[in-house]
């Protein structure tokens, strides 16, 4: 088996269909959806049970989380395989400490359990597995050849997004009086805090004496964070469907200034999406 497994070879059964993130971003209809004056996705406001479309929006979001869990499992598994055990500081050598691999194996178990939880939740919410398309950006972030960048992009950025989503959905379940959703989200949230903390801890340990590598990792995290702010889907604006879970991020090792930066990144992502929408507006007028 190869070291580094390309995203296009990711194995799925026939129920699952991959849609490129670019297809979503370049959808000319996004101009209308991004228009805050319309009933657009953001215009619909925070994802709470009061939204008329809330049950279906929750189903779609949880399916997205489910396929994200599959990819997180695959990414953590690849980190067990792709790198040799070593000091983790070898120049140009893909080495990681033994203990990092143990953490990734533990994450494999957690993500496998999250997949099982998500499958049960899909049954509870009436969603068929594979009902919605899958984008594979999480796994793409997990393909980074530098293990530090890989963990920073996946564990700090994407698992961080999972903290925000799980916290939002936990509250959604609590308000809706849905004991199944609330229970599942609460437990998965605890695991995600652990995973983000793993990412934070390994970033600091492995780059303590290598500031340029640390900066490259943090820059990679910023790129992933911006992309997965999904044009303002996640942010601290009043109408952001998913909001930053600052308390849980703090538990996971995020400092206040890092969370402020993330909020700013989400704001920029929103502004960029609005710019894309504006650029596409002539097509819609036509």
């Amino acid at each position: 088996m190869r070291k580094s497994f390309p995203v296009e070879d990711l194995a799925r059964d026939e129920r699952f269909v991959h849609v490129a993130l670019a297809d979503r971003i370049n959808d000319p209809r996004n101009a209308q959806a991004a228009d805050s004056g319309s009933s657009g996705r953001r215009g619909a406001g925070r994802l709470t049970p009061e939204r008329p479309d809330a049950p279906d929006a929750a189903r779609a979001l949880m399916h997205g989380i489910f396929v994200g869990e599959i990819q997180a499992l695959e990414g953590a598994g690849r980190t067990c395989w792709d790198f040799e055990v070593g000091s983790g500081n070898g120049e140009g050598i893909p080495e990681v400490p033994f203990e990092l691999k143990l953490d990734m194996a533990r994450q494999c178990w957690d993500e496998a359990r999250h997949c099982e939880i998500s499958i049960k939740l899909s049954g509870h919410m009436g969603t068929d597995l594979g009902e919605f398309s899958e984008n594979t950006f999480l796994y793409e972030a997990a393909c980074n050849p530098d293990p530090v960048l890989r963990l920073t992009g996946v564990n700090r950025a994407l698992e961080g997004l999972a903290i925000d989503v799980f916290n939002t959905m936990r509250e959604f379940g609590e308000i809706a009086g849905d004991p199944v959703l609330e229970f599942c989200e609460d437990w998965m949230l605890a695991d995600e805090v652990t995973h983000v903390k793993m990412g934070s801890d390994w970033l600091r340990k492995l780059t303590a004496d290598d500031k340029p590598r640390q900066e490259r990792a943090l820059e990679f995290q910023r790129v992933v964070d911006k992309l997965f702010s999904l044009g303002g889907f996640r942010g601290e604006e009043d109408d952001s469907p998913v909001r930053l879970a600052r308390r849980f991020r703090e538990l996971a090792g995020f400092k206040d200034d890092e969370m402020d930066t993330l909020a700013q990144i989400a704001k920029e992502a929103r502004e960029e999406m609005e710019a894309i929408a504006e650029a596409n507006r002539p097509a819609i007028a036509h």
């Binding site: 809330a54 279906d56 049954g123 919410m125 809706a176 009086g177 849905d178």
Partner: peptide
């Protein structure tokens, strides 16, 4: 089940 989930969200679980 999807419809049941919608109904429960509006009428309680």
């Amino acid at each position: 089940q999807r419809r049941l989930y919608q109904f429960r969200n509006r009428h309680g679980f």
